[in-house]
């Protein structure tokens, strides 16, 4: 299949990613409501679908308030970072054969690098706000995301070993015979957990921790700057869900239906799973999270890597 014009595909992916993120706000609110015995937004448009439009109009019209005590340049930069890094990651995401902005041979590493950069956004937001709650949120974010990053990368190395490549389309193609979720089940679980931590959602929402830190790192943000964090979070959710389906569930591969449909089907099931997790779980304490990360997850990821490596060696 011939690739469309690069500008077109960049625009296409950006617009689709953004609209999915916006749509997710509605999906999440409706799904949460379903699981919480209530209605959720159902007033604006059919099934409340236009709620997103109403919310975006509101958030764009809000006063762009920058508190006088903040570190201004950093304060403005922080929400942009989260947005940019997540969008960049979408560039290496293969939606269907040929539908990809850039098929990098190190696509997976690029994704990991971008998600590491995303940490800066939260840390800088917490730091530049000059607010104690934001600072505590930023500190927690730094520690949490750094430690979960470590085994996030490691948990994927099993997949790389099996596929023999860092290129994401090639990884999908390598799953023609069997989805990697079966040989790499521990890796899948670890990546899922790391992905939750990476997107800072319950049970890993410690940087925000509403009942403790008010709003954590984005306490001082309002208007569209807050909106960037907000939409950035949803884009992160869709990115991680998409990555799970690409790396472990064969991306666009599937019978009968076209590849794009399979891709989105898989992606949305994981998004729904993320929402379900949010509806179900409480939040661990900061030190518990760290000790689970370093004492349980990291060794497991290493063992998984060793076992996979040994198996691959023996096989060939």
């Amino acid at each position: 299949m011939t690739s469309p014009h690069p500008i077109l595909s960049i625009l296409g992916v950006a617009i689709v990613a953004l609209s999915i993120a916006a749509f997710l706000i509605w999906v999440e609110r409706r799904l949460l409501a379903l699981w919480q015995d209530r209605y959720g937004p159902n007033r604006v448009g059919p099934f409340g679908l236009l709620q997103v439009a109403a919310d975006s109009i509101k958030i764009f019209m809000k006063e762009d308030w920058i508190p006088p005590f903040v570190d201004r340049p950093v304060f403005i930069l922080a929400p942009a970072i989260v947005f940019v890094t997540v969008l960049m990651s979408f560039a290496v995401l293969p939606v269907a054969p040929g539908i990809i902005v850039s098929d990098l041979s190190v696509g997976l590493l690029f994704f990991l690098a971008m998600s590491s950069l995303g940490v800066y956004s939260v840390v800088l937001a917490g730091w530049s706000s000059n607010n104690k709650y934001a600072l505590l949120g930023g500190l927690r974010a730094a520690a949490q995301m750094l430690s979960y990053e470590v085994f996030m990368g490691l948990s994927l190395m099993g997949v790389v070993l099996l596929a023999g490549t860092f290129s994401l389309p090639a990884i999908v193609e390598a799953q023609r015979t069997i989805w990697f979720v079966i040989p790499q089940f521990p890796g899948f679980v670890l990546f899922l957990i790391a992905g939750l931590a990476e997107t800072r959602r319950i049970p890993f929402d410690l940087p925000e921790a509403e009942s403790e830190l008010v709003a954590g790192y984005h306490s001082e943000y309002s208007g569209m700057k807050f909106g960037m964090f907000f939409v950035g979070e949803y884009m992160g959710v869709s990115l991680i869900s998409a990555m799970i389906s690409v790396l472990f569930f064969g991306g666009w591969l599937g019978p009968v239906l076209p590849g794009v449909v399979w891709f989105f089907l898989k992606m949305f099931s994981f998004i729904a799973f993320f929402v379900l997790v949010r509806a179900a779980l409480p939040r661990p304490r900061f030190d518990q999270l760290m000790s689970w990360g370093w004492k349980v997850m990291l060794p497991l990821a290493l063992i998984n890597l060793l076992a996979t490596g040994a198996a691959v060696l023996a096989w060939r």
Binding site: L32, I202, S211, R278, P282
Partner: peptide, 16 residues
């Protein structure tokens, strides 16, 4: 109390 521990749903159930 469940909400204080970070669980978001129980408050809706018990309030119902």
């Amino acid at each position: 109390f469940a909400q204080d521990v970070g669980q978001m749903s129980p408050v809706f159930f018990t309030f119902n």
